[in-house]
Design a protein around this nucleic acid. Sequence first.
DNA 1: CGGTTGATGTCAGACACTGACATCAGGTCG
DNA 2: CGACCTGATGTCAGTGTCTGACATCAACCG
Lengths: 188, 188
Amino acid sequence: MGRWEPNARGRLEEAAMALFNERGFEQVTVAEIAGRAGLTERTFYRHFSDKREVLFPDSNPLVTGFAAAIEDAPQSAVPMETVALVLKAVAAFFVGRHEYSRQRQAVVNANAELREREAVKLAWLSDTLAEGLRRRGVTEPGASLAAETGVAVFKVAHAQWVADPEPGDLGELMRLALIELKAVTCGE
Amino acid sequence: MGRWEPNARGRLEEAAMALFNERGFEQVTVAEIAGRAGLTERTFYRHFSDKREVLFPDSNPLVTGFAAAIEDAPQSAVPMETVALVLKAVAAFFVGRHEYSRQRQAVVNANAELREREAVKLAWLSDTLAEGLRRRGVTEPGASLAAETGVAVFKVAHAQWVADPEPGDLGELMRLALIELKAVTCGE
DNA sequence: CGGTTGATGTCAGACACTGACATCAGGTCG
DNA sequence: CGACCTGATGTCAGTGTCTGACATCAACCG
């Protein structure tokens, strides 16, 4: 047995999610989160750069999966095909996480600071996607535009998905959003 | 003559911009900004909800102009035409502000917290635009997608515009980005 | 067995932000 | 004119976030 209980980081994430659900983000102090996880405030900050980050860790399955999906995507002459593939891969990471996603989104939506952090993470997704497209030979500003557009599709579809109490098919929602997007941008 | 020097808010904005330029956002305290403006820290917080807000006031010409442009836009069957009109109006607000925009962007880009706040403001633009489109009869998710897309065009064009040392034509850059976007999303 | 490592604890402090109350020029009303 | 109110500001005390510096001590390593 180690000197400390294992998985300190995971315990902090759990404790935070539980407390935020009970009383809301602002009404919980970092010291409380750490205490519930059997740790101190200082240790919390060794695992997360700030209080919000416990809900948006860089080691997020979404973030790592997103980056991996871009690397795995085959070369394609049409950037939006790459984007569509990445979105499909991302959808897979949400399978079985519908209830968790709904809880989390409720916490985030209830607080401006958390919505703020979420916006940043989405912007980061966009930048990562654009960079991946450029490495595949897509030139600017096409790469940035395709990336922004892809993330827009993700945002819209994900919002629909978590709004539905029943766990629907996120991949399908994204596919439909993409079709809708083409109709909107290209006119009829 | 009034009891206090007039335009306290403007003095705070100026003092903040000057200090941020000299030493960077993090290295400046709110007390310093207030001191330079001949006021106290507490008064700063009566004008701005937090330290970052002094660079992103809700009473921004961009924000108010953006909202007005949406209201003024005529009804149109094609949502992207409305978006294009709004973008054109927005471009007008940046005329003559190229140097200021460059300085400001340098400060913002140098700091993660400020980039974070900027992402929020852009998200707010997107939401406002989507709401305006819905009031014009555009249905979801088309309204959100058109709005996100429009803001994506704005972001890309604005980034190009401030990256150029010479003051170019932001409206023209937006027009080109929109054309590029259509090419990207609709394929060839 | 002695030295190193690494996750954690302890402590002090800077700074962002807030609530409560005081101040006081200028306007209002009787 | 004088009492009163208003609103922007000042003062002060406090909470909470986040950081740097240093201590601790089990586990591992040579």
